[in-house]
Simulated assay, not measured.
Amino acid sequence: MVARALLLLIFLSLPAFPAFASMCVKCHKPHYEKTGSCTVCHRGNSETSRKNIAHSGLITKKYADFIINRQAVSGGGKTIENAHCRRCHVTGGKGNDIAPDLDTESRRKTAETLKDKLMKPTDYMPDFRMNDKTAEDSVRYILNAGGSAKKVSGTAPYVVFITQGKKSAFDGKCGGCHRLLTRKKGGTGHGNTAPNLSGLFSEYYPADTVKMEGGRWNREILIKWIKNPRKIKPDSLMPPILLTPEEEKRITAEFES
């Protein structure tokens, strides 16, 4: 009985941890206690004292304000909209699934990795030439949107498009100037002198690229454009491209794949 009483006395004399107590507070001074647990802002694993596991996937101090810095998140959201990122990616539960789902990536990747992807885009991602602040606020938006998304889907593997010496219809007729990312065949085209056409038929592609019937690209308008761009936009720099009926079917099918 005496031993039990002594243990109880020792326990009661220990400093009380806050409600969000975790192994984190053994090394780090608590802050923003009212916001929630350490993992709400910083992620990581709060149930272990092993540093390499505790800090796995950690969101560093620089980006951990994505929950409370509403101005930065709002600015990042405007950049995401203006860059039309959703024509390839899902973020905040909205967008096309041509490229990796950013709601999923926001949970898998560190903020620094996400920023690096924005600053050094892959082959079929447009180069937005963001400065550091714009890229960092965009990352804050992605982290915030991913955390609030109702459903996070699995990301399909990226498809490698192997031509084996035979060009796709798009690559042969359009690929010298344009690039296109598709769900089923991955990336095609190698040009950088004309717009990236990924997600062209979707609601997320810029609607003001040309004055069109209905304001959106579709199969019929695309063929009209390819055959005679200057009939739709008189100052277009693109020359007319001759297509056979078979080529028309193959090219539009790639935009829909």
Rank of each mutant, 00 (worst) to 15 (best):
K133E: 14
G75I: 03
K29Y: 05
F11M: 07
M238W: 08
K231Y: 03
I67N: 08
I162H: 04
I232Q: 04
S236H: 07
R43K: 00
L181V: 05
N131A: 01
R140D: 09
H84S: 15
Y205H: 13
P121R: 03
K120H: 15
A54K: 01
S198E: 13
G95Q: 11
R219N: 13
T113G: 01
V40Y: 02
D116W: 08
S148V: 06
T35K: 13
T35V: 15
R219S: 15
N196G: 11
D123K: 10
I68V: 06
K115Q: 14
M119P: 01
E247Y: 00
E112F: 05
G154P: 01
N69V: 01
P195D: 13
K61M: 13
D116M: 07
S236G: 10
V210N: 13
A149M: 00
L197R: 08
R50D: 14
L14K: 01
T39M: 08
F128V: 03
L143F: 03
K151T: 07
G189W: 02
K117S: 15
E81T: 11
T182H: 05
V90E: 11
G95A: 10
K231F: 04
G186V: 00
E256F: 07
C27N: 04
M125S: 14
T155I: 09
I223Y: 07
D101Y: 04
I251C: 05
K62I: 12
I67P: 01
N45F: 06
D103P: 02
V139I: 10
K109A: 13
A21D: 03
K150L: 04
T209D: 13
E248V: 12
A54H: 00
E254P: 02
P240D: 07
F128P: 04
S198G: 14
G93W: 02
G44E: 04
D132G: 02
G176C: 11
G189E: 07
A145L: 02
C174A: 09
F66H: 12
S257V: 13
A207R: 12
A83S: 15
C88G: 14
V159R: 06
R43W: 02
G214D: 10
T182W: 03
C27E: 01
G165R: 02
F66V: 00
K224V: 08
A5F: 06
I251W: 03
D171Y: 02
G187D: 09
I68M: 03
K185R: 11
Y63G: 09
R140L: 11
G147C: 02
I98R: 10
S236F: 10
A149K: 00
A83Y: 08
R70I: 13
S198L: 12
G77D: 10
F161M: 06
K173C: 05
G36T: 08
T48H: 07
D123S: 11
H190C: 01
Q164A: 01
C177E: 09
F255Q: 12
F128C: 05
D127M: 08
A64I: 00
I251S: 13
R140T: 01
S106N: 00
T188I: 06
C85W: 10
Y158C: 05
R140H: 03
A83C: 11
N52A: 12
Y204P: 11
P234M: 11
R107A: 05
E81R: 09
Q71K: 15
T91K: 05
R183C: 00
T113A: 14
C24H: 07
P100M: 08
E136A: 15
T48G: 05
I67Y: 01
I80W: 11
K26R: 05
E81M: 09
